[in-house]
Design a protein around this nucleic acid. Structure first.
Length: 214
DNA sequence: ATCCCGAGGG
DNA sequence: CCCTCTGGAT
C-alpha cells in the first residue's frame, strides 16, 4: 500500500524536523532591514558570500535612511562579489528610498507592500515576513525548494508560483516558515543539485526515484 | 525565453 | 571548461 501524498509530506516534515530541530537561515541579520538586504543579495549567491559583504555594508549604511542617499556606483562596488551587482545595487537604493519616503523608514509588514519594492518578489517577501515578522503568508520557493519538491514528487511544475501553491496545499500553515529552511538545509547537505547523496538519504522510502508513486 | 553577473567546485 | 549558488524583471 503506497502512502498518500499527504502522508508522505507528514513524514518528510517529521524526519527533517527531527534532523535539524530549529533550523534557521545561515544569513546573518539583526533587524528586518538587514534581513531584507541580505535576502536580496542572496539571489544566485551563497549565504557565505553574502555574510562576507553585509557587515561592511551595514557599517557604511546602517539603515534605509543612509542607503537612500548613497551613490549607486559605491553600492555597486560594495556588493560586486555577490553577482548581479548592478541590478542589486540599483534595486537596494531604490528600495531604501521607497521605505524612507513611503513607509516612514520601516520595512513594510505585508506581502502586497513588500511586492512593490524593486527586486522583491514572493520568495524574498516570504523570507522577510516569516523570519522577521513571524507572519506566514506563503512558502519561500528558491532553487533548493524547487529542486527538492520536484524530486520528491510534491509538484509537477517548475514554476515557483505554482510550486508554492502546491506546497501550501500539502503542508499545514504552522510549518510554512520552517519547511523552507528544512528543504534548503537538506538540499545543501544531501539532496544536492549536482551529485545527490541518495545512499545517505533519510527520505529514501518516500522518493519517487525508489518506486513510490509520485 | 532571456538577461543580469561574480565566485567556487569539479 | 561546465554547473551551481535561498531570484527578479523584461
Amino acid at each position: 500500500m503506497q502512502p498518500t501524498l499527504q502522508q508522505r509530506c507528514t513524514k518528510i516534515y517529521q524526519r527533517l524536523h527531527a534532523r535539524y530541530r530549529l533550523p534557521a537561515s545561515m544569513l546573518e541579520w539583526h533587524n528586518p532591514w538587514e534581513l531584507l538586504v541580505a535576502t536580496v543579495l542572496a539571489a544566485q549567491c551563497t549565504d557565505a558570500r553574502v555574510n562576507m559583504v553585509t557587515p561592511v555594508f551595514f557599517r557604511r549604511w546602517p539603515g534605509p535612511a543612509e542607503l537612500s542617499t548613497a551613490p549607486v556606483a559605491e553600492v555597486e562596488q560594495m556588493v560586486r562579489s555577490t553577482g548581479f551587482f548592478r541590478q542589486k545595487a540599483k534595486n537596494l537604493v531604490a528600495t531604501a528610498r521607497i521605505i524612507v519616503h513611503e513607509y516612514d523608514g520601516r520595512v513594510p509588514e505585508t506581502m502586497a507592500e513588500l511586492l512593490t519594492l524593486p527586486g522583491v518578489a514572493r520568495k524574498t517577501a516570504n523570507i522577510v515576513l516569516s523570519n522577521a515578522f513571524h507572519k506566514h503568508e506563503g512558502i519561500a520557493v528558491d532553487t533548493h525548494v524547487r529542486r527538492l519538491s520536484f524530486r520528491l514528487g510534491l509538484t509537477i511544475s517548475t514554476n515557483p508560483t505554482i510550486i508554492e501553491r502546491d506546497m501550501m496545499q500539502l503542508f499545514p500553515r504552522e510549518q510554512w516558515g520552517e519547511i523552507n529552511h528544512l528543504l534548503v538545509l537538506y538540499g545543501r547537505e544531501i539532496c544536492r543539485a549536482r551529485k545527490p547523496l541518495c545512499s545517505e538519504c533519510v527520505l529514501e522510502d518516500l522518493c519517487p526515484r525508489n518506486g513510490v508513486v509520485g
